[in-house]
Design a protein around this nucleic acid. Structure first.
Length: 495
RNA sequence: GGUCGCGUGGCCGAGUGGUUAGGCAGAGGUCUGCAAAACCUUGUACAGCAGUUCGAAUCUGCUCGCGACCUCCA
């Protein structure tokens, strides 16, 4: 594909991407609820749409990437009479709600930076946009798609569904939902079970609450994204992204709120990343089987055989398509780690190579480039791009060993493109090897040791040479002999 | 129960109506004093059954198995 196509969850098909304003893209991603440590699922979502952000920029678009921080407003559940998730956690830990929010926001930022995900252009918080949310409730009320009860405001789904299609995004039929629902405690205020809260009146002991025309309370689950996407991207923008589990009810509600407040849908394209599974089962908070990123990077979890470098985790995720489920396992991550190392060694080699001015043999750069961009144009198919990079890595090796040749100018183009794909588009990062210790003493000692071993080898004293090598291996230092000399790497010790 | 999706070789994971995905692991080889690294070659495949077709793993139907959403979740 020569033009970017993406899978629109709304229409369930791949569509050519055409932004509302030429050369500019407005992109909204549903960010994390900061009431717990960031886990593998956050990583998958953030990395998936980091790729979208990066590739759109590669394609020359100027992108405004808005990703919210949910620091208020998600209810624990209906039966809980609207207790705020963050407030609940705060009470348990005897902390201020904003203290929790601060802590986990920082954690999230740190982990995402380690994964080499770019920060969004704007990262608004729900608590900072209460006024905007209240204004949207007012509009929806004025348009007649909501009703007030005892200080709370609910979205009237049945009335709304007479004027707009409801359930298109998630493929749900309202009749089915009406049949399937059952009465739960705490839903008595709603006219109908399919209705959802726009504003909830807070109990006096509820910690996070704000003044509103209806009550002291807090905004409903879905309102913040409508408010913040509208404020920063307009009431109609290009791309709305998030995890597949948000498709219903969250995104369906957003569509309803947008229609209900301004008469049209919020965006032209919906993108949803698939879930991450552990032993074939979805990783989820309620299932208690989630692995935090801190645990993953340190190896401190019973399911983990070792620590995994953030670069490995990123690469692991990009080896699967964002719309497929991805099953976590030690074997898969270890395979990814080795593969990434191989790729990174090839890129490093590429950066040091001096191009010969000879005829290009056995490699067609134009074809290669086209295969790479076609893959990305086809709904951000990173696994295919990576497979192409491995083909490129093979060629780099052949070029280095003289088995292949390349004309100088084409080599420069190839090199630039390869690095662009690897670092700018995929955002891959090398797994640190500690050759660059910045420690002159260590460098000097290593040089000394390698020279001593070389001398032993030259005098055919292989016992000594091997003893040196074995001892270094035990210390985690890998020795490699080649015609150009001996190099060394210190492997990261794995827990 | 309703809606949707998936089932690919030892493992992970793309793709496709007829032509090698790729990675990891395995086997053989080149290189090396021996290794390591790198490179080359290579086996194993599309859940089952039936149908459409010149041809299906790819389309259709059924069966089996698995999962997701319908409740907070990335």
């Amino acid at each position: 594909m020569t033009e970017l196509h993406l899978f629109n969850s709304k229409t369930r098909q791949k569509e050519k991407f055409q932004p509302l304003v030429p050369s500019r893209v407005g992109m909204y991603v549903c960010g994390p609820t900061v009431y717990g440590e960031p886990h593998l699922g956050h990583a998958r979502s953030t990395v998936s749409f980091d790729i979208v952000f990066r590739y759109l920029q590669y394609c020359g678009y100027k992108v405004r990437y808005v990703r919210n921080i949910t620091d208020v407003g998600h209810l624990e559940n209906d039966a809980d009479e609207g207790e705020d998730k963050i407030a609940k956690k705060a009470r348990l830990e005897a902390l201020e709600p904003m203290e929790i929010v601060q802590q986990y926001t920082i954690e999230y930022h740190n982990r995402m930076r380690e994964l080499n995900s770019l920060p969004p252009s704007i990262e608004p918080t729900a608590s900072g946009h209460i006024i905007e949310q209240i204004n949207i409730v007012k509009k929806i009320l004025a348009n007649g798609y909501a009703y007030e009860k005892n200080g709370s405001v609910y979205f009237d789904v049945l009335k709304y569904a007479k004027d707009f299609p409801y359930g298109e995004l998630s493929g749900k039929k309202l009749e089915d939902m009406l049949e399937g629902t059952r009465d739960l405690d705490g839903q008595t205020e709603k006219n109908n079970n399919v209705d959802f809260a726009l504003w909830k009146k807070a109990k006096p002991e509820h910690i996070m609450q704000w003044e509103s025309p209806w009550s002291k309370g807090f905004p409903g689950w879905h309102l913040e994204c409508t408010a913040m996407s509208t404020k920063y991207l307009g009431d109609r923008f290009d791309l709305h992204c998030g995890g597949m589990d948000l498709q219903f009810p969250h995104h369906e509600a957003e569509i309803a709120q947008n229609n209900g407040s301004c008469g049209h849908e919020p965006c032209n394209y919906w993108m949803h990343n698939n879930m991450l599974t552990i032993n074939g089962q979805k990783m989820g908070k309620s299932l208690g089987n989630f692995i935090t990123l801190r645990q993953l990077f340190s190896g401190d979890h019973e399911l983990l055989q070792q620590a995994y470098h953030p670069g490995t985790v990123r690469f692991f995720m990009l080896q699967a398509h964002y719309r497929s489920t991805l099953d976590f396992s030690n074997e898969a991550l270890q395979a990814a780690e080795k593969g990434l190392n191989r790729l990174m060694k090839a890129v490093e080699l590429l950066s040091k190579m001096k191009p010969e001015n000879e005829n290009s043999r056995d490699f067609n750069f134009a074809d290669f480039k086209s295969r790479c961009t076609s893959a990305m144009n086809d709904d951000f198919n990173t696994p295919i791009l990576i497979s192409q990079l491995f083909e490129g890595a093979k060629f780099i090796q052949n070029l280095n060993s003289g088995k292949a040749g390349m004309e100088k100018e084409e080599f420069e183009n190839f090199k630039n493109f390869f690095e662009e794909m690897t670092f700018d588009v995929l955002g891959l990062i090398p797994i640190q090897n500690n050759t660059d210790t910045n420690d002159e003493t260590v460098e000097g000692l290593m040089e000394l040791i390698i020279n001593l071993r070389l001398r032993a080898k030259q005098s055919k004293d292989f016992d000594t040479a091997d003893a040196i090598r074995n001892q270094l291996t035990r210390m985690g230092i890998e020795i490699r002999d080649s015609k150009e000399g001996t190099t060394w790497d210190k492997n990261i010790p794995q827990q």
